[in-house]
Lab assay of single mutants.
Amino acid sequence: KKRTSIEVSVKGVLETHFLKCPKPAAQEISSLADSLQLEKEVVRVWFCNRRQKEKR
Score class of each variant (00 low, 15 high):
Lys1Asn: 07
Lys1Arg: 08
Lys1His: 04
Lys2Phe: 05
Lys2Ala: 07
Lys2Asn: 11
Arg3Ala: 10
Arg3Gly: 13
Arg3Ser: 14
Arg3Asn: 13
Arg3His: 09
Thr4Ala: 11
Thr4Asp: 15
Thr4Ser: 14
Thr4Tyr: 09
Thr4Asn: 10
Ser5Pro: 10
Ser5Tyr: 09
Ser5Phe: 10
Ser5His: 10
Ile6Ala: 06
Ile6Gln: 11
Ile6Glu: 08
Ile6Asn: 09
Ile6Cys: 04
Ile6Tyr: 04
Ile6Ser: 10
Ile6Thr: 10
Glu7Asp: 15
Glu7Leu: 10
Glu7His: 13
Glu7Pro: 15
Glu7Asn: 15
Glu7Ile: 08
Val8Arg: 15
Val8Asp: 12
Val8Cys: 08
Val8Ser: 15
Val8His: 13
Val8Trp: 12
Val8Gly: 15
Val8Ile: 13
Ser9Asp: 15
Ser9Val: 10
Ser9Phe: 08
Ser9Met: 07
Ser9Leu: 09
Ser9Ile: 01
Val10Phe: 00
Val10Ile: 13
Val10Cys: 06
Val10Leu: 06
Val10Glu: 14
Val10Gly: 03
Lys11Gly: 04
Lys11Asp: 13
Lys11Thr: 11
Lys11His: 10
Lys11Leu: 06
Lys11Glu: 15
Gly12Arg: 09
Gly12Val: 12
Gly12Lys: 12
Gly12Tyr: 12
Val13Met: 14
Val13Gly: 04
Val13Trp: 03
Leu14Arg: 02
Leu14Trp: 01
Leu14Glu: 01
Leu14Cys: 05
Leu14Asn: 05
Leu14Pro: 01
Glu15Thr: 02
Glu15Gly: 01
Glu15Gln: 02
Thr16Trp: 08
Thr16Arg: 13
Thr16Met: 09
Thr16Tyr: 08
His17Trp: 10
His17Val: 12
His17Glu: 10
His17Thr: 06
His17Cys: 06
Phe18Trp: 06
Phe18Thr: 03
Phe18Tyr: 10
Phe18Asp: 02
Phe18Lys: 06
Leu19Ile: 06
Leu19Phe: 00
Leu19Cys: 07
Lys20Cys: 03
Lys20Trp: 01
Lys20Thr: 11
Lys20Ile: 05
Lys20Ser: 06
Lys20Leu: 06
Lys20Arg: 07
Lys20Val: 07
Lys20Gln: 05
Cys21Trp: 01
Cys21Asn: 15
Cys21Thr: 08
Cys21Ala: 03
Pro22Arg: 07
Pro22Gln: 14
Pro22Trp: 10
Pro22Glu: 03
Pro22Tyr: 00
Pro22His: 06
Lys23Cys: 14
Lys23Trp: 13
Lys23Asp: 14
Lys23Ala: 14
Pro24His: 04
Pro24Trp: 06
Pro24Gly: 01
Pro24Ser: 05
Ala25Trp: 02
Ala25His: 11
Ala25Glu: 13
Ala25Asn: 15
Ala26Asn: 12
Ala26Ile: 10
Ala26Lys: 07
Ala26Leu: 11
Gln27Ser: 14
Gln27Met: 08
Gln27Lys: 10
Gln27Ile: 06
Glu28Thr: 07
Glu28Lys: 03
Glu28Tyr: 07
Glu28His: 04
Glu28Asn: 11
Glu28Ile: 06
Glu28Val: 07
Ile29Ala: 00
Ser30Asp: 13
Ser30Glu: 14
Ser30Thr: 11
Ser30Met: 09
Ser31Phe: 11
Ser31Lys: 12
Ser31Gly: 07
Leu32Arg: 01
Leu32Trp: 04
Leu32Phe: 01
Ala33Trp: 01
Ala33Lys: 00
Ala33Ile: 02
Asp34Leu: 05
Asp34Gln: 10
Asp34Cys: 05
Ser35Asp: 13
Ser35Ala: 13
Ser35Trp: 03
Leu36Met: 09
Leu36Tyr: 08
Leu36Gln: 03
Gln37Cys: 10
Gln37Trp: 01
Gln37Leu: 04
Gln37Glu: 14
Leu38Ala: 03
Leu38Gly: 04
Leu38Thr: 04
Leu38Tyr: 06
Leu38Ser: 02
Glu39Lys: 05
Lys40Ser: 10
Lys40Asn: 09
Lys40Ala: 12
Lys40Gln: 11
Lys40Gly: 06
Glu41Arg: 04
Glu41Cys: 01
Glu41His: 10
Glu41Met: 00
Glu41Asp: 13
Glu41Leu: 00
Glu41Ile: 02
Glu41Pro: 02
Val42Tyr: 07
Val42Phe: 08
Val42Gln: 09
Val42His: 01
Val42Pro: 01
Val42Lys: 05
Val43Trp: 00
Val43Phe: 05
Val43Ser: 01
Val43Met: 00
Arg44His: 06
Val45Ile: 05
Val45Tyr: 07
Val45Glu: 14
Val45Lys: 14
Val45Asp: 15
Val45Gln: 14
Trp46Ser: 03
Trp46Ile: 04
Trp46Leu: 02
Trp46Gln: 07
Trp46Glu: 01
Trp46Arg: 00
Trp46Cys: 09
Phe47Trp: 02
Phe47Gly: 03
Phe47Ile: 00
Phe47Gln: 01
Cys48Ser: 13
Cys48Asn: 11
Cys48Glu: 15
Cys48Gln: 14
Cys48Pro: 02
Asn49Val: 05
Asn49Ser: 08
Asn49Asp: 12
Asn49Pro: 03
Asn49Leu: 06
Asn49Cys: 04
Asn49Met: 08
Asn49Ile: 04
Arg50His: 00
Arg50Lys: 06
Arg50Tyr: 05
Arg51Glu: 09
Arg51Asp: 01
Arg51Gly: 02
Gln52Leu: 12
Gln52Gly: 08
Gln52Lys: 09
Gln52Tyr: 11
Gln52Asn: 15
Lys53Gln: 09
Lys53Thr: 07
Lys53Leu: 12
Lys53Trp: 01
Lys53Val: 09
Glu54Asp: 09
Glu54Met: 02
Glu54Pro: 01
Glu54Thr: 00
Glu54Gln: 09
Glu54Phe: 01
Glu54His: 01
Lys55Pro: 02
Lys55Cys: 12
Lys55Phe: 10
Lys55Trp: 06
Arg56Gln: 04
Arg56Gly: 08
Arg56Leu: 11
Arg56His: 09
